[in-house]
Amino acid sequence: MVRRLGPESSNGGSRKPLTIAGQVYKRGFGTHAESSLFIQVDGKAKKFVALVGLDDAVRDRDAAVEFIVYGDNKKLWSSGIMRSKDAAKKIDVELKGVQKLELVVTDGGNGPYYDHANWVDAKFIADEKAIFKTFDPVASVPYILTPKPKETPRINNASVYGVRPGSPFLFRIAATGIRPMHFSASNLPKGLTLDSITGIIRGNIEKKGIYEVRLVACNGKGEASKQLRIVCGDEIALTPTMGWNSWNCFGHEVSAEKIKRAADALVKSGLVNHAGSC
Rank of each mutant, 00 (worst) to 15 (best):
N245Q: 01
K85R: 14
R179V: 04
D115G: 07
E257K: 13
L51S: 10
R27E: 14
C218G: 07
I173M: 09
Y114D: 15
A88S: 14
N118G: 04
A139M: 12
F48N: 09
F132Y: 08
A126N: 09
V160L: 04
V69T: 11
G97H: 05
F135E: 10
G43T: 10
S196F: 02
S255R: 07
A175V: 05
P189I: 00
D42E: 11
T198E: 06
I201C: 00
N204G: 07
I236D: 14
I178N: 03
I39Q: 03
R27M: 09
H32S: 08
S10M: 03
R202K: 13
E94P: 06
R202V: 10
S246M: 04
S246P: 07
A265W: 04
A256D: 12
I125D: 15
D56V: 03
S36L: 11
M82L: 13
E66L: 05
N187M: 12
S35G: 01
E151G: 13
D195V: 11
T176M: 06
I210E: 10
K190T: 10
G97R: 04
L266C: 13
F67L: 03
F38T: 03
V272W: 05
G199S: 02
G12W: 14
K89R: 15
G220C: 05
W247A: 08
I39F: 03
S196T: 12
K148Q: 10
K148W: 04
F135D: 09
E66K: 14
K89G: 04
D234F: 09
A185F: 00
N245P: 00
P189E: 06
I201F: 01
V24K: 15
I197L: 10
V24F: 02
P149Y: 04
G162M: 02
S14L: 09
I201R: 02
G243F: 01
K47H: 15
G12D: 01
F171H: 02
P240F: 10
F171M: 00
G53D: 04
A174V: 01
K150I: 08
A175H: 02
L54G: 06
L228Q: 02
A57M: 09
P7W: 05
G222A: 04
S225F: 12
A45D: 11
A126F: 07
W77F: 11
A64F: 02
V93W: 05
I205K: 00
D62K: 14
A262N: 13
D121T: 08
I68Y: 06
G22V: 05
Y161F: 14
F171E: 01
Y143G: 07
W119P: 05
G251M: 08
P165N: 10
S186E: 13
A126S: 15
F132K: 07
L228Y: 02
V141H: 07
R164G: 13
K207Y: 06
T152I: 15
V138N: 12
S78G: 15
S269H: 10
E257C: 00
S277P: 00
V24M: 11
G6D: 09
S140L: 13
Y211M: 05
R15A: 14
I230D: 03
S159Y: 03
V104Y: 03
I236S: 14
V160H: 06
H252L: 03
L95I: 06
